[in-house]
Computed example of a mutant assay.
Amino acid sequence: MTAPSRPVPWPDSRTAEFWEAAADGRLLVQACGDCHALQFYPRGHCVRCFGSDVGWREVSGRATLHTFSVVHRTWSEAFAADVPYVFAIVDLEEGVRMTSRVVDVEPERVRCDMPLQVVFRKLEDGGAVMPFFIEAVNPL
């Protein structure tokens, strides 16, 4: 029996630039043209000043682990081969918080405040390139 296919990102007019940058190995967050606040996830307005002049800015990809959960039982059979995996909320160096996964680290070694660095991986079933995080080798 084959596993069901995984849900994959569906770029739209608001997120296409983010996914194109990820495919090029670059991490983008939204930046407000009025108040210069950064935000993630993509929205049609700034969450700080409610301005509509939001664009994209490349960020370093350096982060620290804010919190995490080790997933042992997945909600979908499509992810069953991945368990256990680390679902994470990371604080990017630039002050933006985002969700992702920590990869290439044994789950029992993961800890809050761990220095991280973004990596990009192409999904096997869908072709999308996703940002994940690994333990930073030489944190600043």
Rank of each mutant, 00 (worst) to 15 (best):
V54M: 11
E106H: 08
V118M: 01
P7I: 06
W19P: 04
P9F: 10
M1E: 01
R111I: 02
R111Y: 00
D104A: 15
P11M: 05
G127Q: 13
D34Q: 13
V103H: 10
F87D: 12
S52I: 13
S5W: 08
R97G: 02
D91L: 14
A16G: 04
V105E: 13
Y41F: 15
H72L: 07
D34S: 15
G33A: 11
P42V: 12
M1A: 01
C49F: 08
R6D: 10
H36E: 15
E135G: 07
V118L: 04
S100V: 12
H66F: 11
D104E: 12
A136W: 08
M1T: 05
P7S: 10
V71W: 04
T74L: 06
Y85P: 13
R111Q: 11
I134A: 03
A128E: 13
A136F: 08
V90W: 08
A136Q: 11
V105Q: 01
P131N: 13
F68I: 04
E17C: 05
S52K: 10
G25T: 10
V47M: 14
L123E: 00
Q30R: 00
G61A: 06
R14S: 11
M130I: 15
F87V: 14
R97M: 02
D12I: 05
G61R: 11
V86I: 10
E93S: 14
V137E: 12
V70Y: 07
H45C: 12
V70K: 04
E106S: 10
E94H: 05
L140V: 05
L123N: 07
R111C: 11
H66Q: 13
N138P: 03
R57P: 08
N138F: 06
S5T: 12
F40H: 15
M1C: 07
V103C: 15
V70W: 03
W56V: 08
G127E: 15
R111E: 15
W19G: 08
H66V: 11
P131T: 03
V83W: 06
V70S: 08
L116C: 03
P4K: 07
V54H: 03
I89T: 13
E108C: 02
G51A: 04
R73Y: 01
K122M: 14
A63N: 10
V86R: 01
L123F: 07
S5F: 06
L116A: 04
A3C: 00
T64Q: 02
A63P: 02
L140Q: 13
P107F: 06
A80Q: 13
E58C: 03
E20C: 01
P84S: 02
V90R: 05
G44I: 09
R101S: 10
F18K: 04
A37C: 06
V86T: 00
V29T: 00
G55W: 04
A23E: 11
M114R: 00
V96R: 08
M98P: 06
K122W: 02
A63L: 13
F68H: 09
V86E: 03
R97L: 08
E58N: 10
W10S: 02
K122T: 15
D24Q: 05
A31V: 14
L123G: 12
V59W: 07
R26N: 13
S13M: 09
R73G: 09
E77G: 11
W19R: 12
